[in-house]
């Protein structure tokens, strides 16, 4: 395991992670439905799995083997979980897990907003789209990882990244994915839940991104 990881530089590792989180964000942004895109994404995930020994090859296989005929079911399943128009089976918003009100735009959402602001980032559509939508939280992590390769203030960015992972996404991701696992009707959505959990846990468990 260490051997594999030692083959790439720190910079390359950040780059990989940033891209992997971008993939997860794209999944929740409802943008990963093109078979060609999926094919490419699968390759990245396979390599990442290999690199970190995440034991998610079965889940990746499910995504790989999902053919177009089933795609519609997957999409409908995805929509029931995260999009609507019914009551969401697995709401993709932090505040619906961490706030007792189970509403949107709560204190947690505003806390996420202030994290974004620390990195001079805001939601495109601020005030309309809750800042703590999972796609945005994942995108923010991808962005910070990307910054690790671009900027000099590494320590500050790393600290922000760690804090965000542990204070926000890490606090609710399991409950969310448990719900997905319980409510999803398709193996496809369940497989993604496994992949997302493994990828995030990798960074949560280590407590540091390095």
């Amino acid at each position: 395991m260490m051997n594999l990881q030692s083959q790439i530089s720190k910079e390359e590792a950040y780059e990989w992670k940033s891209k992997v989180y971008s993939i997860l964000a794209a999944y929740y942004h409802n943008q990963l439905w093109n078979p060609k895109d999926l094919e490419a994404v699968v390759k990245v995930l396979e390599d990442y799995n290999h690199l970190y020994q995440l034991k998610m090859e079965d889940a990746i296989e499910v995504i790989k083997s999902t053919n177009l005929r089933h795609e519609e079911d997957c999409k409908f399943d995805f929509n029931k979980l995260f999009i609507g128009p019914y009551k969401l089976l697995a709401p993709p918003y932090e505040s619906t897990y961490l706030n007792h009100d189970k509403l949107l735009m709560r204190a947690e959402t505003l806390s996420v907003r202030s994290f974004y602001e620390k990195a001079n980032i805001q939601v495109d559509g601020k005030g309309q789209i809750p800042d703590d939508h999972i796609a945005l939280e994942l995108e923010f992590i991808a962005f910070l990882l990307h910054q690790l390769n671009q900027e000099n203030e590494l320590t500050a960015i790393k600290a922000l990244l760690e804090e965000f992972l542990n204070e926000h996404l890490g606090k609710w991701i399991d409950e969310h994915l448990d719900l997905v696992n319980k409510q999803a009707k398709t193996d496809y959505c369940k497989a993604w839940a496994i992949i997302i959990r493994r990828i995030i846990h990798l960074d949560l468990n280590r407590m540091t991104i390095s």
């Binding site: 971008s22 794209a26 943008q31 060609k36 094919e39 490419a40 495109d124 991808a142």
Partner: peptide
């Protein structure tokens, strides 16, 4: 693989610009 989905999630070769989606 990254290049193929480059436009979508910024999987292309190392970029200096982060490909924002919702932020």
């Amino acid at each position: 693989g990254a290049a193929a989905t480059g436009a979508l999630v910024g999987l292309g070769a190392t970029q200096t610009e982060f490909p924002f989606q919702g932020l």
